[in-house]
Design a protein around this nucleic acid. Sequence first.
DNA 1: AAGTAGACTTGGGGGA
DNA 2: ATCGCCCAAGTCTACT
Length: 264
Amino acid sequence: MPELPEVQTIINGLNSKVLGKEITKIIELRPGTVYRQFPITSLDNIISISRKGKYIILQTSSNYKLIIHLRMTGKLIFENDLTKTSNHARAEIVFSDKTKLIFDDVRTFGKIQILKFNEEVPALINLGVEPLSEEFNIIYLKNKLKNRKAPIKNALLDQTVIAGLGNIYVAEILFRAKVHPATSANNIKSTKLERIVSETKIILREAIKHNGTTISDYRNVEDKTGEFQNFLKVYGKKICKCGAMIQKIKQAGRTTYFCEECQR
DNA sequence: AAGTAGACTTGGGGGA
DNA sequence: ATCGCCCAAGTCTACT
């Protein structure tokens, strides 16, 4: 799915398009997309739009919130015309001013949860630090990784270590930090950990500036692609800028791209 | 406890 | 051109 920069781009779009709007109904077009623990009876305004890791949180004025996860192929598309729809619309959030958000998701992994405002979700409670916050520093990372023998690639994908990284950005981070993805997490030198921390922040900020990375499905709320795919150095590449072939290996079921020459 | 294969699901692309 | 196999931005569960 969308990783942190893509989700942040969507948050920015939602803030300009739907903040303050009144929700009249939430339509589930495919069963299993929307989890409701209670019926929504009143009309509610969206009073805040934020993100934790890759989770989108819409807080409403009358004590409930929507937690949306896009997983691999989910999109939130703002639409001015209520009669319009999209190929894989799974749910719609309809507003009183005759606009709506379409939740479109080819692979149907994405979900919308409707929760009481103070209700917590285990996945959200257990999230690690935000990589762009000051809490994400070498002391934190060293402590989190000290007992982990698994490859650094797997550890950085673990949302309870850092919230928001995914397969593309972890590959790019390790490439720029010059760390081999199979290195045991607890066996990385401090200078390299420092590089991982600093490159993570740099890459994520750059990617947000370019509206995220579109490999295939990701779109922002205006149904537009991101541009950061033009700046990737290793993910999906065949040849490294050093001239060596980019290697592809499987780690924890995911494909890892890396350069044997540059990442040691 | 840590680590990982499998499951969920649809569609696009390279190859026979 | 068709068929069918492999692959994909993520995370939860169940097993060793």
